[in-house]
Design a protein around this nucleic acid. Sequence first.
DNA 1: CCCGTGCATTTACCCCGGTTAATGCGGGCG
DNA 2: CGCCCGCATTAACCGGGGTAAATGCACGGG
Lengths: 254, 254
Amino acid sequence: MDANAANLTAQGDVFGNRWEAPFGRASTAFERVLRANGRGFRAGTTLKLEGDDNGAVYVVLSGWLAMSKSLANGARQIVDIVVPGGIIDPSSAQSDICAVQIETLSYARIAVVARAEWMRLSEADASVRRFQAMTTAAALSRMSERMLRLGKASAESRIAYALIELCLRLSAIGGGSGNTYHLPLTQQRLGEYTGLSSVHVCRTIRRLTRGGLIDMSDHMDIVIHDIDVLACIADVDLEVLRRQIIVESTATVL
Amino acid sequence: MDANAANLTAQGDVFGNRWEAPFGRASTAFERVLRANGRGFRAGTTLKLEGDDNGAVYVVLSGWLAMSKSLANGARQIVDIVVPGGIIDPSSAQSDICAVQIETLSYARIAVVARAEWMRLSEADASVRRFQAMTTAAALSRMSERMLRLGKASAESRIAYALIELCLRLSAIGGGSGNTYHLPLTQQRLGEYTGLSSVHVCRTIRRLTRGGLIDMSDHMDIVIHDIDVLACIADVDLEVLRRQIIVESTATVL
DNA sequence: CCCGTGCATTTACCCCGGTTAATGCGGGCG
DNA sequence: CGCCCGCATTAACCGGGGTAAATGCACGGG
């Protein structure tokens, strides 16, 4: 299966607006299923409501998704952001109910795989199971990391962490270039991701840009100038973080 | 395997200080492994440090564990609390590194299963995989739910949610009785769970007790008097929450 | 060209919850 | 018995970040 490595397509323009998912070209049953079930969704589409019945697993082929939850007063928290190569299994303990709302942050191509078919695939192929296990572990690490910030870190640290996390994840799949990338998020949504109000996101980003740490132009085209200082503010070790949240070499796993 | 249902032992005294894990009596390979690897740990033992190498999977047979992360300044966030019947897989994306610190909150019996052996078990037995999948899904739901509170809810709501979550989880495994149970947590730790300072945990609990919603005596013996109002403050629907975070009938899955 | 709309930005105001520190209180132990 | 230690409780203070609202700015459509 490693033969697929040569087929990897993980391309992005300068600001990384387009990516191909890090999957091979339909040479395995898994890849054939992805290809057969791929569908396009425009930005802002809601795929699944909280509490919705839950019959499918989603594999992101391109584009960005957000998984979020809301309180009765309408306040929203983005629980995780998923980029190409990610798997979303919306099932909760009793899998007939969905714990999160899922929506596209950009145009996205997604393989919508019926649960039964997903089970068949995963029962039949240990490497699919391994891939799913690694993806899940990465998601758990990300969420733990972000819970720590939500509970204990300052606004500056939360924003710095979010910028770094997304930068690492994007460059792992070939999005953006170096420390330059585009986020398909408004400040409002970045606030929902970091547990801040949009106003305070703005204040904080302003402080970071004035300090020369980052640049932000044209609705979230990000340039990180000094990633070491940013990592220090975010309170992360870049290499350790990468090992915890990045699934290396999707192709060699599958 | 359903024959094990009769063997279920999920017992607790009035305040639920002791529980047996909801596993059967060593009649399957899985149960034999649990039994063979069971070890006791006293309260406050650290099983695994953040960044530690990560060679085992833990299955909680009795007692409570906390998974936590810390910032450089020492601030700590408890990312999840695990009760009997729970599985802890400390692996992150690259499984040689551990993303969280794991420690016992009470005396605990834990099956420490080497990763290789765990893989063998799970490869060999689809019902083990199913059990692990459900446990993971439940953990993700819990974490999502708590992230929402960390990001967007008031102190009162966070405490109310924590009390309800733990009440539901405990009664599912037969801990406590009705809405009465014991938490092996200090207010400090409850603060680390909810993202609050211990002082504010105290203030908030005081307000809830003075309002007659709950009672708390003798270091965290909890009685919930009006769970409906509490659920309203926590902004949850009890039945929906239970379906999302509780793995029903461990025995019938295995 | 002129609006309308959606988003970013900034200011003014204020409150929730963190911090610090003093006090109480029970339990274990010399 | 008296001491210490860990924890809960309470009060005083204050600052980070929420809220509301005004302004700017880019874009698209009539």
